[in-house]
Amino acid sequence: MDGLALFCNLSADGPVTLRRLRAVGVRDLEQLAATEATTLAEWLHVSLPQAQAFAAEARKLAQRIGESTRRARGAAAPAASEAPGVPLAAALGREQRLVPGLLPALDATLCARLAGAGVRTVRALAEGAGLALARRTGVPYSTLLTLARAARQLGTARASAPDVQELRVHVLIPERRPEPARVAGPAPVMAAAPVAAVPVVAAHGEPFALPLLEPESAGPFG
């Protein structure tokens, strides 16, 4: 079960909503959490307030399961590949700002229109393209879809680039953690190593919060 399926079971009717979201191209909880409420309302055939509540729940759960998974696995800092709900391509896309010429047919006018609607990164474009954005920006819907496809391809290409390992170490470090001790020297990958020793602060005070699970690995069944 991925984060998206978990969310659909917790906040919707389960399989039907999950199928619908996957059919429109939602790949994970992070992507859902970043989707605009107006787009969600269209996808799920619900009212705007319902879609806003849905998106807010998705954001809360995305943050929550990151903590929950790390706590359950007893890991002080998860490997990048284990961090739930934060796909690499999305994480990379978050960093990549939209500039003219970055994508085919993306010129200065389009960039300005998209920026006017709050779409400033590759990731935001890949995940936010929809009828609502087309209406707000005046950019034809088909052009938006073409741009979004190109944005996704760019994210995928960057994810498979040789410097991915180095990049994801930085991108996936949770922002709320204390800064790791500075290590002399310029090597950024090595500087990420001390983060592994930073303990995760478990969320306390929540009703029915689960006890800490056993810290050791479950071996082939884990």
Binding site: M1, G3, L61, I65, S68, T69, R71, L213, F221
Partner: peptide, 21 residues
């Protein structure tokens, strides 16, 4: 709420081994 918490805990522990349904 207990069931919701348990599902989150089970997901955290078993991840992809847990059926979506």
């Amino acid at each position: 709420e207990l069931a919701r918490e348990l599902l989150i805990g089970t997901h955290a522990r078993f991840g992809e081994r847990l059926f979506d349904t």
